[in-house]
Amino acid sequence: MPGGGFVKLPGGSVVVALTLPRPPGGPAAECGSVRVLVHAVNRARALTRLRNLGMRAVYLRGNAEPPTPDEVTAVLHHPDGLLWRRAAAVPPPGAAQELWHPIRALLRS
Rank of each mutant, 00 (worst) to 15 (best):
P92E: 15
T68P: 01
H101R: 09
P66N: 03
N63W: 03
R51M: 09
W84D: 08
P91N: 10
G81E: 06
I103L: 04
L83G: 02
R61C: 09
L107G: 10
L60E: 07
N52C: 07
H77K: 15
R51V: 05
E65G: 01
M55S: 05
P93Q: 15
H78P: 01
R61M: 05
G62S: 11
P79R: 14
H78N: 13
E65S: 06
R56E: 12
R56Q: 11
A96T: 07
R61F: 08
R104S: 15
A89L: 14
G62I: 04
V72M: 02
G94D: 12
L82K: 04
R61A: 08
V58K: 05
R86G: 08
A105Q: 01
W84I: 01
L106C: 09
T68H: 09
E98I: 00
Y59E: 11
G62P: 04
P67Q: 15
Y59V: 13
H101K: 08
L76M: 14
L50D: 01
A88Y: 11
R104H: 12
A74V: 14
A95H: 11
L76V: 02
P102V: 10
V58P: 06
I103F: 04
E98L: 00
A64H: 05
R85P: 03
D80N: 04
A88P: 04
P67T: 14
R56D: 11
Q97K: 10
R51Y: 03
P66F: 08
R51C: 07
N63L: 03
R85V: 02
P102A: 05
A88I: 15
D70H: 12
